[in-house]
């Protein structure tokens, strides 16, 4: 136990400032996000992530939002296990035809009002995979999409910015 506490103390809080990025950029994005979420979502935004056919690259970076550097939860944003608890679906793609039904069912299970953000180049326009016998390409070919965050994959900072841009516009 002592070694755990010592390690925690030695590492300290890495959450800010985000050193490798331009000073306080992350803090600024985060503070705005917090304000928006406080005002419009009563302090809490619940996200359900759905992989509709991605290569898993986008998932790795969405995961990174929960590490100590970005610590998404401090802004009141959290990932939930069920679409029934979600305000927002973060969908990665392309939508494989084998996932079309499951994606639609997940969307239908999400209570109104709800939003869909397409994450990643494939979700935006089909990316390397496009439309084929196996793929429906962009998310908007299957669900109404409210915003798009591009990147292959988008970095955690791009994801934060994309969330903020969408929420401030709402």
């Amino acid at each position: 136990m002592k070694s755990i506490l010592l390690k925690i103390a030695r590492v300290g809080i890495v959450t800010e400032p985000a050193r490798p990025y331009s000073d306080s950029e992350l803090e600024e994005v985060g503070a705005e996000l917090r304000t928006v979420i406080d005002q419009r979502f009563r302090g809490s935004l619940a996200i359900r992530q759905v992989d509709a056919g991605s290569c898993n690259g986008c998932e790795l970076e969405i995961h990174a939002l929960n590490n100590a550097f970005y610590d998404l939860e401090r802004y009141g944003v959290h990932f939930v296990a069920s679409p029934r608890h979600a305000d927002l679906l973060l969908v990665t793609g392309p939508v494989s035809r084998h996932m079309q039904h499951a994606l639609k069912a997940t969307y239908d299970a999400t209570p109104d009002p709800k939003w869909v953000i397409a994450v990643g180049t494939c979700a935006a326009d089909g990316g390397e995979f496009g439309v084929s016998y196996a793929s429906l390409g962009a998310i908007e070919n299957v669900l109404p999409v409210d915003a798009v965050i591009r990147g292959c994959p988008p970095t955690p900072l791009t994801l934060l910015r994309g969330l903020l841009t969408f929420l401030t516009r709402r």
């Binding site: 992989d51 056919g53 991605s54 392309p94 494989s96 084998h98 996932m99 499951a102 995979f129 496009g130 084929s132 016998y133 196996a134 793929s135």
Partner: peptide, 9 residues
């Protein structure tokens, strides 16, 4: 479920 036709495309 995530078959994307990689071999074909």
């Amino acid at each position: 479920y995530v078959h994307k036709g990689i071999e074909k495309i």
